[in-house]
């Protein structure tokens, strides 16, 4: 955890000053975060920041390549965008971004995302969870049933606590399923130093073993069959059956 002595240094890159000011205002309520750089363009090199909040739409183009360049230099990028299309979000994550934050999710999730990413942990917002759970591409990693359930309900709900109570597990375990699903995405697609960093951090956290990372991602122990279905019926949910149907 970042200590009060060493605040998280954040860069905000957006070609709209009003957006920069908005993000700054959200971050300013948190003394453990310091906005140390703002810019309208991706600078050639940047070394003295922990997290970069990058608008995906710079100069009327999608900055996917900029994400790849920054990720290639080991920079932790949070993409902040009004675009919420599947292909764009998946492309940004594939390019090595740690997190994708829809503008509508800013107020609720920006601070959590910044802290998670500053510590080297990817963060999945509810919108991104919806995209991961409905990813039907052939190259999509295979997720376990519980990972899919956690993603789907996180996408739908207000809090991980409510997902946890519905799944009958702890919020920490919900988070674990979501992170494991996200880390599977770090193991497919193009290589990036940031993806390796995420996996190393997951090993440190005890979320993955070195062997799991080395040999690709095996299925979690209880689920012997992984499913592409959205979610099988989960015990513990209250199902109201139609009367006389």
């Amino acid at each position: 955890m970042a200590s009060a002595a060493a605040p998280v240094r954040v860069s905000i890159i957006d070609d709209h000053p009003v957006v920069i000011e908005g993000i700054r205002a959200w971050l300013n309520v948190e003394p453990r975060i310091k906005v140390s750089h703002v810019g309208t363009n991706v600078p050639a090199s940047m070394s003295n920041v922990d997290v970069i909040i990058l608008d995906l739409h710079l100069d009327r183009r999608l900055a996917i390549d900029d994400i790849a360049t920054l990720a290639g230099a080991g920079q932790r990028v949070i993409v902040f965008s009004q675009f919420t299309e599947e292909e764009i979000v998946l492309a940004a994550l594939d390019a090595g971004a740690y997190a994708f934050l829809a503008k509508s999710e800013g107020p609720d999730h920006l601070l959590t995302t910044v802290f998670a990413v500053a510590e080297g942990r990817p963060y999945v917002t509810p919108m991104a969870a919806g995209i991961l759970v409905s990813d039907q591409r052939p190259e999509a990693p295979v997720l376990s049933e519980r990972e899919r359930t956690a993603l789907l309900w996180w996408f739908q709900s207000m809090s991980k606590a409510s997902v946890a109570s519905r799944m009958g597990i702890s919020p920490h375990t919900v988070d674990m399923y979501i992170r494991r699903a996200r880390l599977k995405y770090a193991q497919v697609g193009r290589a990036a130093p940031t993806k390796t960093d995420m996996l190393m951090r997951a090993i440190e956290d005890g979320l993955l073993t070195r062997d799991e990372v080395a040999e690709g991602f095996p299925l979690p122990a209880p689920a012997t069959t992984a499913s592409r279905a959205i979610r099988p019926a989960v015990a513990g949910s209250v199902e109201v059956k139609p009367a006389g149907a």
């Binding site: 409510s162 109570s165 139609p242």
Partner: peptide
């Protein structure tokens, strides 16, 4: 609840309906 021919799962929490 009595008429819908699909399954409904609801979760009341913190005055939020899901």
């Amino acid at each position: 609840r009595s008429s819908l021919p699909v399954s409904v799962v609801d979760d009341q929490e913190a005055k939020q309906l899901w």
